[in-house]
């Protein structure tokens, strides 16, 4: 039935619609560069969504846990074999994405008889020198983008735009400032996603404007506080100050408590 080109285009269109629905209630992922390294943040319910890939590479994902695991393993295998056969310096996010997983994700998306990968992936890479840090994001259709100072994953590109606009107006130099910024940016994305979801559910259309969505900091923190019920704030850092080759570490609850804005740290169990 897909022999005719327009049928195939229609099938791909349906698949896009199906995938967009899968991400509607996912937790956004935010990554920012700060003086200590690169901070990644999301909110998770049990299963973590932030991982270490290689010495200077971290992974953040949205989507189906089994698909994320499959691609995470692919990245781990490629990175470690390359790091062993050549050197750690040859393991770059760009090569892993462009020649590694992006073609796999694209193929899965376009093979309409098979299940697509329900994933959106962010790869953060700590440069050997400050100023050389970067991000790569891959969409469920295999489209990848490179960014330098910050990157986000969210349910739709319009939500991602909104988060990026918010990030553009923020300053984050220290780790504490970065934690504050990623938390608020996450709230911007999550609020926008929930708003969009409710709009679709009610067909009434939500009347909240984008300015209201990107409300003041206090409103964003209140939103995070409400969403913390049954979920955990997950933060990982590619830490320039860590000795040794592996720069990835997660922020434990004690450290996170000290770094979070005071009204959120009190809600942290």
């Amino acid at each position: 039935m897909y022999e005719e080109p327009y049928r195939w285009v229609e099938a791909v269109g349906n698949r896009r619609q199906y995938l967009d629905e899968q991400f509607a209630q996912g937790s956004p992922v935010v990554g920012v560069v700060c003086d200590q390294g690169i901070l990644l943040m999301t909110m998770s319910k049990g299963t973590p969504k932030l991982y270490e890939i290689y010495d200077r590479l971290a992974f953040g994902g949205m989507g189906h846990p089994a698909d994320l695991e499959k691609l995470r393993f692919m990245l781990l295998e490629m990175a470690h074999v390359e790091g062993f056969n050549r050197s750690a310096a040859d393991v770059t996010g760009s090569r892993l994405v462009k020649y590694g997983i992006a073609p796999v994700v694209k193929q899965a998306f376009e093979e309409v008889f098979k299940a697509p990968s329900i994933v959106k992936i962010m790869l953060a890479e700590l440069g050997q020198k400050a100023g050389k840090d970067g991000f790569l994001t891959i969409n469920y259709d295999g489209v990848f983008e490179e960014k330098s100072q910050y990157a986000v994953l969210a349910a739709t590109s319009s939500v991602e735009q909104r988060m990026m606009e918010y990030l553009r107006r923020q300053d984050c130099v220290s780790l504490k400032e970065a934690v504050d910024v990623v938390i608020r940016t996450w709230a911007v994305g999550d609020r926008a996603q929930r708003q969009a979801h409710e709009t679709r559910e009610n067909h009434e259309g939500a009347k909240e404007s984008s300015d209201q969505l990107v409300a003041d900091s206090q409103a964003l923190l209140t939103h995070v506080r409400q969403r913390m019920e049954g979920k955990a704030i997950e933060c990982a850092l590619l830490d320039r100050q860590v000795s040794g080759t592996s720069k990835y570490r997660t922020l434990g609850s004690v450290e996170l408590k000290a770094l979070l804005p005071s009204d959120l740290s009190s809600a942290l169990t």
Partner: peptide, 8 residues
């Protein structure tokens, strides 16, 4: 490293 990163 590979064990730590894959098996968490």
């Amino acid at each position: 490293k590979y064990y730590r990163r894959t098996q968490l």
